[in-house]
Structures are given as structure tokens and as C-alpha cells.
């Protein structure tokens, strides 16, 4: 009988703990990278080896879309979500959550490393670029499109590794929802 009471008590504690965690997770803005400095995050991602000046700096939008509302200017010190510092399991899960719940991530500066891919959009006659990440077994892939601030002079080959830093946004076109990184910088 005493054991049953202990079990029931433990159950109640678990329920309270679960409820409090859910309450915290659903409250206002999500801030990542609180415990480490921005410079630490950047150093982790580049292993201190890449020169930040390897980022391509550009001056004109490349996607033909209206960017008059794009006020966010991406700088190296503004990274909110650094996917390059995570394991592949976490990266896939985070990108999946970004794509399925994009409202929670709008305006966040994201840094991600993945495979470069390009496809031609016939309706707009533009090339669309994406960074694709895979889960641990590489059987599932998730990608995010990115729009560079200005066209790059040189692009990597298909499925080559790239690092992209940009501001997360999404756009609904009919029944389709497109998630993207805008004002992006790319390095490879």
C-alpha cells in the first residue's frame, strides 16, 4: 500500500514537472545561445579556421523578389540559431521544426551548414538555392531555401558543403509554404 502511495506521489510530481516545462516552452520568445558569447558560437562553427572575410559581401538582391520590407541586416554577431555547432540529429530535428512551425522562427538569424543545391524556377525564371541537411542515417533530408543579398560571383558545385547565414522567414504561395533565409551570406 505504501508503495502504491509512493508511485502515485511520483506520478503527480511528474505531471507537475511536465506541465511546468510545457508552460515555459510555450511562453513568448525563444532565445538561444544565452550561455555562450556570440564569438564563442562563431568560433565553434568555424573551428577558428575560417576567416570571416571569406563570406561573400554583396550589395543587390538576387532573387527578383520585393525586399523593401527586409529591414534585418545580417552581421556575424547576430546569429540566434547556430546549427553548425550541433550534432546532425539535432540539426535535422531543428530544421524540421523550423519548416513545420515557421511562425516561431521568423526574424531569427540562422547559421547552417549543409549541402548546396540549385533548381531553376520556370515561373519566375530565376535560380533557387537551398541548403540541405540530413539526419544521422542520411535517409531523411530537410532543406531551407536561401536568398543572397546580391548574386554571388561564384557558386559551389551541386551537393558541395556550404555555410549560410541569413534571417529566417516564410511565404505562402497558394497551398504551398516556402521557408527561406533572406539577406543571406554564403561561404564555401
Amino acid at each position: 500500500m505504501r508503495t502504491i502511495k509512493v508511485l502515485v506521489l511520483a506520478l503527480l510530481v511528474m505531471i507537475l514537472f511536465a506541465a511546468s516545462c510545457k508552460k515555459q516552452s510555450s511562453s513568448a520568445s525563444v532565445n538561444y545561445n544565452q550561455s555562450t558569447s556570440v564569438q564563442d558560437v562563431l568560433d565553434q562553427g568555424t573551428s577558428g579556421e575560417k576567416d570571416p572575410s571569406s563570406y561573400i559581401t554583396i550589395t543587390e538582391p538576387s532573387d527578383g523578389l520585393d525586399h523593401s520590407n527586409d529591414n534585418t541586416e545580417v552581421t556575424e554577431s547576430d546569429v540566434d540559431i547556430d546549427l553548425t555547432a550541433m550534432s546532425s540529429t539535432m540539426v535535422y530535428a531543428e530544421v524540421y521544426n523550423m519548416v513545420t512551425n515557421p511562425e516561431k522562427y521568423v526574424g531569427k538569424t540562422v547559421r547552417m551548414e549543409g549541402l548546396f543545391t540549385v533548381s531553376h524556377d520556370d515561373t519566375r525564371d530565376i535560380d533557387r538555392y537551398a541548403c540541405v541537411v540530413m539526419d544521422a542515417t542520411a535517409c531523411c533530408a530537410q532543406g531551407i531555401e536561401f536568398y543572397l543579398k546580391v548574386p554571388a560571383d561564384e557558386y559551389p558545385g551541386e551537393w558541395e558543403n556550404v555555410v549560410v547565414v541569413g534571417t529566417f522567414d516564410f511565404e505562402d504561395q497558394g497551398v504551398w509554404r516556402y521557408c527561406k533565409l533572406i539577406n543571406a551570406d554564403m561561404s564555401f
Binding site: I15, A18, K22, S26, T89, M90, Y92, A93, Y96, N97, T100, N101, D135, A136, T137, C139, C140, A141
Partner: peptide, 28 residues
């Protein structure tokens, strides 16, 4: 990606990390 969907369902590679809020509450 049917193979990926099947693989994820059969082996649960990242399913637990991609639960929706509704899934979490139903599970709890």
C-alpha cells in the same frame, strides 16, 4: 521521400524530436 518516411517510422531515427505540441500533450 517515401523511403525516408518509412525508415523514420520503422526505426524512429528522429521522430521523438519532431513531435508537434498536440502530439506531446496527447502522449502526456
Amino acid at each position: 521521400n517515401i523511403s525516408g518516411d518509412v525508415c523514420t517510422t520503422l526505426f524512429g531515427s528522429t521522430s521523438i524530436l519532431t513531435l508537434s505540441d498536440a502530439d506531446v500533450w496527447i502522449s502526456i
